[in-house]
Amino acid sequence: MTDLRLEDVSKVYGADGTGTSALEDVDITVRDGEFFTLVGPSGCGKTTTLRTIAGFEAPTDGAIRFDGREMAGVPPERRDVGVVFQSYALFPHMNVAENVGYGLRFREPPDGETVDKRVADLLKLVDLEGMGDREPDQLSGGQRQRVALARALAPAPDLLLLDEPMSALDAQLRESLRRQVTRIQSELGITTVYVTHDQAEALAISDRLAVMHDGRVEQVGRPQEIYREPATRFVAEFVGDNNVFEGDVRGRNGEYSQVAIDGETISLPALPDGADRAAFCVRPGALSQAADHNRLPVTVETSEFLGETVRVNGRWNGRRIVLQLSDVPESDELTVGFAPADAHIIDQD
């Protein structure tokens, strides 16, 4: 179907390109049929990226290509994209069937189907069979969201763009809808760009994702790569719980490099030669009381019981540290350690 390329896309607001910069050299390739997520805190530029793909905003610089075709100057109505907004934006003066069928006023239904048949098929796809006569204000939030999805898919777009479509729903509904969206996406095999601020959601549903921060792409990769090998300090801290440290490189001891933090020496996997500062991160789950390397005395401050595990917030030498234990600690003082291989070195820039 379609692959999507963003080549060094920049977006600057304000006159003559002197205003605030919303996107800086965003370079992303979304492969045909892929479920690709843009994730980041609010204001990071993920929604702006989506809007430039849809054609609602023009990039100040760079190119957007659908299957190699440059899209500059192509208005949204001629891009063949389906968009679902956070507010759903159902047309309040049209019933469900009219909403879903709206795009078919401008494009023929695929495979020579009639409009009515296509609308009925789409409603069935999103489990809203027979609801065509309802008015939007008679629907629940989850139902509206599914109508919006059916409407976006009805003209068989080349590309599906979802802008935080779940964030107005409660947690349980969100999970079931998330499964439905991924099922439909893989059934149709449609290239999809999904925008969310929820990193856990991004990890759970994406084939690949891009973590964005301050208008820049920090890292692109599969969920496992992003989680296990964060490329920057921002990614390390934004995706999942993490402990990030920085220290002075003291030298090499066999297969390990030695790093000093406040006088304590920590063993890490071998660092490149010539580095004098090093940043690394250790996931809470990698810190255990049983480990015999890199022992750190921790003062417990709070414990949060999460069911299977307990999240412990504490301090080591005055630095914040997060642990994941199997039970609430009995004492306020405990010592944990981690194997050098469990530390991930973050590239310094």
Partner: peptide, 18 residues
């Protein structure tokens, strides 16, 4: 009016006038 209403219509193939 939610600006997303017009944008939805545009994405579905409607011109600005439509």
């Amino acid at each position: 009016l939610d600006p997303a209403l017009v944008e939805s219509a545009r994405a579905l193939g409607a011109s600005r006038y439509r």
